[in-house]
Simulated scan of single mutants.
Amino acid sequence: MTRPITLPFYAKLAFILVTLICFAFIFCTGKNIITPVLLAFLFAVLLLPIFSFFNEKLKLPRHLAAIVCLIIFLSFIVGILIFISYQVTYMANDFETIKKNANAFIIEIHKFIRENFQVSIGDQKKYLDSVTQDSVKTGQAKLGSFIISVSDVLFDSMIIVVYTFLFLIYKEHFKLFLAKLIKRENHSVLMDILSQIKVSINNYIVSLIIEMIVVSVLTSLGLWIIGIKYFILLGLITGILNLIPYIGITIAGIITILASLTGSGETSVILGILIVNIIVQFIDNNLLVPLIINSKVEINAFVSIMGIIVGGAAAGISGMFLAIPLLAILKIIFDRIESLAPWGYLMGNHVPRKFTWRKRKVATEN
């Protein structure tokens, strides 16, 4: 029987760093291929209970059960998009009102700058004209890249649906592949890891949906109180964009401010919108995220923020969305492998008592 090789700490650390660098290089190089696969994997795990119901309970063939699951999933998404597009079309009828109130709001800003910073309105308009001309030139240059980006999004959406379908029908095939990679005595650990990954991802995505609904309701209620016309639509958009860390709520605030111009361009209304967004974000960050999100994935805030930043730098918005579930999967794997358990503990949100170092007793010779 061969004895396991024991390496010093610095050698283990070097292997870990090299492995992380290799994974990061592979992901950054092939992010356009890997990101749709990971998104499809998350959606497939979310749809597994529905797939099992149709396949095992109702005895539908595997392919038919997967198709039904995708139809339900896509119908839900398309329904939300149709509602939003209908409301946006209805709001477009108020374009002239928006334009009028926007001009009034801009005039108020010009007056505020003139009174407080002693910059004449003429100088302000000259500066805005120069910026506008540069923006038009830049926009014309980027129009082609924007069209290419839209086509890429449509292609990625179609390929994600295909990948999700394949993940569902080849679920057992992938499990058997993983079982063949490891020794038979470790199969129980593998099954425990897979079951925990399924539970963790399901809990995380369901928690995101609950958070989206709560944020949408709170935002809609706040906008209704201050008298915003399209409060339901804007609340729903805020809830959806809130799923994008950091930048989502900023985009939602800008959209809400623009939509508020359908009523009036008063500064007090815009100030009320900002107050509503701040209050909702305070509730979200201090109540919803700790109680709903962090309690499900069990990852501390430091690792979460670092993961979101790294994911955004590597793969944009998709990387930011994938960061938390991927970290949760890594933590599940680390917790169940003895040599990697310290890294799983580092990622966790446990708050230990004060740690005291134990001194080693040194034996003295008489």
Rank of each mutant, 00 (worst) to 15 (best):
I169E: 03
I197Q: 02
S149W: 11
E96V: 13
L154R: 04
L143S: 13
K171R: 15
V161N: 03
E172G: 11
R114V: 07
T97V: 15
L154K: 08
K198G: 04
L168R: 02
T164V: 06
F95N: 08
H173R: 12
Q140Y: 12
I225Y: 08
E96F: 10
F155C: 08
S157Y: 13
N103Q: 11
L208W: 00
V136W: 08
L181V: 02
T97E: 10
F231N: 09
F167M: 04
I193E: 01
D152N: 15
L143C: 09
L154W: 07
Y230F: 15
D134N: 14
K171N: 09
T138H: 09
K99N: 09
I159K: 15
K229E: 09
F117E: 11
G227L: 06
L176F: 09
N202H: 07
R184A: 09
Q133A: 15
E108V: 05
K229F: 05
D156A: 15
A92Y: 09
Y204T: 00
M191V: 05
H173Y: 13
K142R: 15
F231C: 10
S207H: 02
I109D: 04
Y163H: 08
E172V: 02
H173K: 14
L190C: 05
F105A: 14
I121K: 10
F117S: 12
S220N: 07
G144Q: 11
Q118A: 14
F174E: 03
S145T: 14
D156T: 12
S157F: 15
K183C: 11
E185A: 13
N202F: 06
I226Q: 03
I232T: 11
L154N: 08
K137P: 00
A104C: 04
I201E: 01
T132Y: 10
L218Y: 02
S151Q: 13
I159F: 12
K183M: 07
F174A: 08
S200Q: 01
I147P: 00
D94M: 10
F165G: 01
K198Q: 12
L190H: 00
K229C: 03
S120M: 06
L176M: 10
Q140V: 12
Y230A: 14
F95L: 14
Q133W: 06
K198C: 01
K99W: 02
I197F: 02
D152F: 07
A179V: 05
V199T: 06
I225F: 13
I232N: 05
L176D: 05
L166P: 03
S149Y: 12
Y204L: 01
L223G: 01
S157H: 05
F105E: 04
I210Y: 04
S130D: 12
